[in-house]
Simulated scan of single mutants.
Amino acid sequence: MSQQRIIAHFDLDTFFVSVERLNDPSLNSKPVIVGGTKERGVVSTCSYETRVFGVHSGMPMAQAMKLCPHAIVLQGTRGDYSRYSRWVTEIIAAKAPLFEKASIDEFYIDLTGMDRFFDPVQWTVDLRQEIINATKLPISFAIASNKLVAKIATDLAKPNNYIVVPFGKEKEFLAPLRVNKIPGVGEHAFHTLLDLGIETIGDLQNANPVMLEQQLGKHGRDLWNRGHGISFSTVNAYHESKSISSENTFHENISSVEELEAEIVRLTEKIAHELRQENKMAGCVAVKIRYPSFETQQRQASIPYTCYDDELMFNAKTLFHQLYRKGQPVRLLGVRLSELTDEASQTNLFQDVSRKNELYKAIDDVKDRFGKDLITKARIAGRREAPEGLDETS
Rank of each mutant, 00 (worst) to 15 (best):
P166G: 03
W224I: 00
S18K: 15
Y360S: 04
K326E: 13
G184P: 03
K30M: 09
Q214A: 14
A153V: 02
Q205S: 12
S243E: 09
R21S: 09
H273C: 12
R178K: 14
N160S: 04
M59E: 06
F294E: 09
A286L: 06
D115W: 01
A144P: 06
G184N: 01
V330K: 10
Q3R: 09
K181H: 10
F294D: 07
F141P: 10
V353Y: 09
L319N: 04
A96F: 02
T296M: 06
I139Y: 04
N133M: 15
I132C: 05
D80A: 08
T14H: 11
I375L: 13
F250A: 11
Y162A: 07
N357K: 15
T135A: 03
L98D: 02
Y360H: 06
H70K: 08
T50I: 09
L193H: 07
N348K: 14
F118M: 10
P60Q: 05
A8V: 07
R178C: 02
T318H: 10
H321P: 03
A62N: 09
R83G: 11
D310E: 11
N146M: 03
N180L: 02
D13W: 03
A272I: 01
C46D: 12
G227I: 00
C46A: 15
I244C: 03
H188E: 14
L390G: 10
S394K: 13
A362F: 11
E343R: 15
A381R: 11
L323C: 04
G186R: 11
R383N: 14
A362L: 10
R5L: 02
L22W: 08
Q4L: 10
G217F: 01
V257S: 07
K147L: 08
S18R: 14
H228D: 01
G334N: 05
G371W: 00
E263A: 13
V88H: 13
A189C: 10
D222K: 13
V335S: 05
R178Y: 13
N357V: 06
T200S: 10
Q214H: 11
A282C: 06
S246L: 12
Q346V: 11
H219V: 09
H219G: 05
I33E: 11
Q3C: 03
R78N: 07
P138S: 02
D80Q: 12
R384Y: 14
Q205I: 05
A71H: 03
T135E: 06
E170I: 04
K181S: 10
G371P: 00
G220I: 03
G327V: 01
K280D: 00
I131Q: 02
N23Q: 15
D310L: 05
G229H: 00
K377P: 13
L22F: 11
L323A: 02
I163F: 01
A316K: 01
A207N: 01
G54K: 08
P387N: 07
